[in-house]
Each structure stands twice: as C-alpha cells, then as structure tokens.
C-alpha cells in the first residue's frame, strides 16, 4: 500500500499546496513541505538509485539525512539526499546510476 493517510486517530494531516514534480519525466503527486523521498514513496517508488559498484537497487534507510542511502539526481545535480530535499514546483528527479554524472 502506498499513498497518503487521510484519517488518523491521533494526528491531523493538513496538506499544503500541490506542487508538480517529475520522476524520470513522469509527473508525481506531491505537496509543499514533503521531502522528495517521501513523495516518491507515496507514489510507490522505492528504488531511488543503483549502487556504484555492484549496481544493486537502493532506497532510503534512515529518512532523516544521516545514512546517505537515498542519493538521487535532482535538477541535474547528483548525490543529493532526497530525504532532506523538499519538493519544489517543476523539480526534475532521476534515479541515480552509480556515482552520478557531474556533466
């Protein structure tokens, strides 16, 4: 199950404005204030990159900016922590292959 929690016994989720972000060119539902990793997870995307040496699929582990497992290419810049980067309108996100391409 992916998607967003609408009703919760303790918390009251109030979503901010909808923003347009793109994953591999495809538009993904996202709301202001969400991290890139969170918005992608809500859309069912768990593989965030392929590792540099063995090319294994990887996702986040800690989701709070410590483990560096969630590095992605965001707006052309590789090795960005997707869990600490908030979504922005028009953002282009790509799965990072290996170490990413700086050019």
């Amino acid at each position: 199950m992916e998607g967003r929690i609408l009703e919760h016994p303790i918390l009251n989720f109030q979503r901010k404005a909808r923003v347009k972000i793109f994953f591999e060119g495809r538009e993904i539902e996202a709301y202001e204030g969400e991290s890139v990793a969170a918005a992608l997870h809500a859309a069912g995307i768990r593989v965030l990159r392929y590792t540099p040496i063995d090319g294994r699929p990887a996702g986040f582990f800690c989701a709070v900016g410590k483990c560096s497992a969630c590095l992605m290419e965001i707006d052309g810049i590789p090795n960005v922590r997707s869990c600490m980067t908030k979504v922005r309108d028009g953002m282009q996100i790509r799965r990072q292959n290996k170490n990413g391409d700086l050019l």
């Binding site: 992916e2 918390l11 989720f13 969400e34 991290s35 969170a38 809500a42 989701a63 709070v64």
Partner: peptide, 11 residues
Amino acid sequence: TLMNQYGIFPG
C-alpha cells in the same frame, strides 16, 4: 518519519 510526519503509508 513517513507515517507520522508526512502522513504517507510506509507499506
């Protein structure tokens, strides 16, 4: 973080 901060089903 996913569930209680962002309100996203973690699985």
